[in-house]
Structures are given as structure tokens and as C-alpha cells.
Design a protein around this nucleic acid. Structure first.
Length: 286
DNA sequence: CTAGGATCCTGTCAGC
DNA sequence: TGCTGACAGGATCCTA
């Protein structure tokens, strides 16, 4: 699912491709995903792209911003002059572009186009004044991010403050910004901590290990351009490749690669926690 | 404060 | 082959 590394990959490409473009027209094919007045962005020139956890803000020079959350299956695809030698589109770019899942099209000057696709329609786009982006409830309640603002001290205080199970705590956006199901599963495996443990019972050593593991898996995700699960692609229309390097996510039934686990042929289990698929090795994750 | 369930939506997949 | 129903999942809202 698009999480911090995926959304950051989108942000970096948008920065490269759409900054400098002026929005000439907005076409909305599915109103439900779009809030605010699209007229407020017409004529605006893109100055920069900010990311808040899993949300993005395309900031214009006319005091307005386009705030986007792509949730599970949203895609932002750019076509235009800033895309040098367009790469071959991923099969995940549904039905070509535009396609039946293209809900919004931003027409830019110099023949640039930014498409917003979303199969499951969970994502949203909001037009707000730039000085009010941080008042959008999702962003307003966002906790500190692992690679920016979250410190070991804060993380330690957070875990010790609650009896909640660690995995759902990691995925709580109001506590930690940007971590979702894939990276929560992988970080817990890397730290050798069972997802079902109560956060408050983790030792200082475990907290430190988990803190470092979260950073490690997010950095790896970033390095690989994100995980192209479901529909995820970057704005140039290509896949990331973290999905080929999952540590625990989606590995149900596979052998755990740790040495001591191979000896006893321990396999990954799958359980449900908070309605989410949870993958872990019962042998090495204590 | 916390857990659990329903909700939104549609492609995919198992079962017949 | 084709149909049907279950299922997944981020965030939000509601109830207990």
C-alpha cells in the first residue's frame, strides 16, 4: 500500500516534473473524490510539493494548494515535456491514460498533463488555501515521522505510554506519520518483535531495535522507489521494486530466512490484527 | 483511552 | 466457461 516511501517517491517525481507548470484546466470525472473549488487552482503555477505522512500538497503561487491522499490504489501520472524519453508504462497504469479509472485530469501549460487514477476510489483531492493545508484533519492529527521529527526518546515515550499492541500502534497515523501495513510488518520482523506484543511491555533494547528497524525498512523502500503492490506506480508510470524485497509482508507459508529459523524450518504465519493482514515468524519474533 | 465493527469501492480469486 | 460471493485494505466514524 502506498506508505511513506511510496508517497515520497511520488513527491520527488512531481517535484521534478510539475514544478514550473501552470494549471490551465481541471477536468473532474468523479466528483466524490474531489473537494473544494477547482477554479481556485486554474492559473496557478506549481511552486513545490510537500508531503505530510501519506498525504501530498501541491503548492501553487496563487495561495492555493492541491492536497492529495492516494490511499490504496490512487495514481498520479505525469505526461509532458519534463518527462525526458518517457519510460514504458507499467501494466498497473490501468487501461492506459486516461482510462476508466481516471477521475481527475489537470491540464498544464506546455502540453503537460497530470492524471489522477484510483480504482477503489478511496483516495481524495482537496483544494484549500496553502496556509490551511495543515488544518486538514488528517494532517493536523499526524504524528511525527520516523525519518523526520521522530526521535528515539519520543518513540520510547510513545511505546511506554500505552498497552496497545505494537503493530497497530505503529500504523496509527496520529502517533507515527507514514508507516502502514507493509513497513510495520517488515520493521517488526527485522527487530525480531512479535506484532502482538503490548507496546508498553517492550524493553529499552527492543524499543531501540524497533526504532532503528523502522528507519531501515523505510530507507530501503525509498531506495527502491517504493513497493508496487496493488496499483502503485510513480508519476513517470513505472513500478518501484521494494515488493521484490519484502522481509515479512505477504510471506505467509514461506520459510523464515534467519539461520536459526531455517534449522527448525519455521514458516511465516498470517493472522489478522485490526482487520489487517499481519505476517510474522513465530520462531524469531518474540 | 481502547478495541472492534461498519463503511467506502472494485478487481481478483475460490468454489461450484 | 461463467456466475456468485467472499475478500482486501487506509482512514473515519460509531458503539461498547
Amino acid at each position: 500500500m502506498p506508505e511513506l516511501p511510496e508517497v515520497e517517491s511520488v513527491r520527488m517525481q512531481l517535484e521534478k516534473y510539475v514544478v514550473g507548470h501552470t494549471i490551465e484546466r481541471v477536468e473532474i470525472n468523479y466528483q466524490k473524490c474531489f473537494q473544494g473549488d477547482s477554479d481556485n487552482v486554474v492559473g496557478g503555477k506549481v511552486r513545490g510539493i510537500r508531503r505530510f505522512g501519506k498525504a501530498l500538497s501541491i503548492d501553487l503561487d496563487n495561495k492555493h494548494s492541491i492536497v492529495i491522499h492516494i490511499k490504496l490504489t490512487g495514481q498520479l501520472i505525469y505526461r509532458g515535456p519534463n518527462l525526458k524519453s518517457p519510460p514504458k508504462l507499467s501494466k498497473k497504469v490501468l487501461d492506459g491514460i486516461p482510462g476508466k479509472h481516471t477521475h481527475v485530469i489537470f491540464r498544464l501549460n506546455h502540453k503537460g498533463i497530470l492524471y489522477y487514477n484510483d480504482v477503489r476510489k478511496f483516495g481524495w483531492i482537496k483544494i484549500v488555501r496553502s496556509d490551511r493545508v495543515e488544518e486538514i484533519s488528517f494532517i493536523k492529527s499526524l504524528g511525527p515521522e520516523p525519518l523526520d521529527g521522530m526521535t528515539l526518546k519520543k518513540f520510547s515515550e510513545l511505546t511506554k505510554s500505552t498497552k496497545r499492541v505494537i503493530k497497530t500502534l505503529l500504523m496509527d497515523q496520529s502517533k507515527i506519520g507514514g508507516v502502514g501495513n507493509i513497513y510495520a510488518n517488515d520493521a517488526l520482523w527485522l527487530a525480531r518483535i512479535s506484532p502482538t506484543r503490548s507496546a508498553g511491555e517492550l524493553s529499552d533494547l527492543e524499543i531501540k531495535r524497533l526504532f532503528n528497524s523502522i528507519e531501515d525498512v523505510l530507507r530501503e523502500g525509498l531506495k527502491r522507489g517504493g513497493a508496487s503492490e496493488l496499483s502503485f506506480v510513480t508519476p513517470d508510470g513505472t513500478d518501484g521494486d521494494y515488493q521484490d524485497h519484502f522481509l515479512a509482508y505477504g510471506k505467509e507459508g514461506d520459510n523464515c530466512p534467519r539461520k536459526e529459523c531455517r534449522k527448525v524450518s519455521s514458516k511465516f504465519s498470517k493472522i489478522k490484527m485490526g482487520g489487517r493482514g499481519t505476517y510474522f515468524c513465530p520462531a524469531c519474533q518474540k
